[in-house]
Amino acid sequence: MNNYKIECISLNKQYKGRNVLITAVRDVSLKIEKGEFILLKGRSGAGKSTLINLIGGLIAPTSGKVTIDGFIVNQLNNKSLSNLLLNRVGIVFQGFNLLPTYDIYENIEVALAPRGLSKREIKKLAIPYFERFGLSEMMHLLPEELSTGQQQKVAVIRTLIRQPSIILADEPTASIDDITAGEILELMRNLCNEQNVTIILATHGIVPETIADRMIVMENGKVINQ
């Protein structure tokens, strides 16, 4: 058993374009320790989101493998992968991926529902997060009725509330004000320090490098610096 929580080995991902194959991730190998805070940097199109999705098992690699605690994510069966996503890996999507016809409280509720929690338990968990992010008065609004920043906060809450041991955050602060962004980063840093949560935070913007334990830079699908 190695000490790495996450390991990518010769990871490649190609998408079929209309006439060409687009290589989004190219021969990426990296190791991330438990409780490490990784800042994944790179320009738009560098392959950060694809790498996040590959690590989370949301897409299958063209070749190579991703392991989490020694389990090969891309070889897990559907049930094991669902369990992994439900209990251990939380993903903050770049596009938020909120359910448009559910209000924001229900968006949080559906993330916890498969765990079999009661409505009261869900409420007890959710309310402090809504208060902390200043969304208490908006719990019953639809995502489209919120600003982009507020939607991003909901997406972050949806991930944090499930208390995963790995957080894969794709541009989680891109659309929010500096103060809230700072709070989210601070919260993540604390999760890392206090609960040994492994965090990979992808960004193309300005996030202080000091927040992370390590920075990985991607360019054209390749890791050029780690």
């Binding site: 989370g56 949301l58 559907n78 049930k79 669902s82 369990n83 992994l84 996503l85 439900l86 209990n87 993903i91 999507f93 991926n97 909120l98 359910l99 559906v110 993330a111 529902a113 498969p114 949806r158």
Partner: peptide
Amino acid sequence: ILKSLGWSDS
């Protein structure tokens, strides 16, 4: 989206 949140396929 629900699948990415850990909802099982079944």
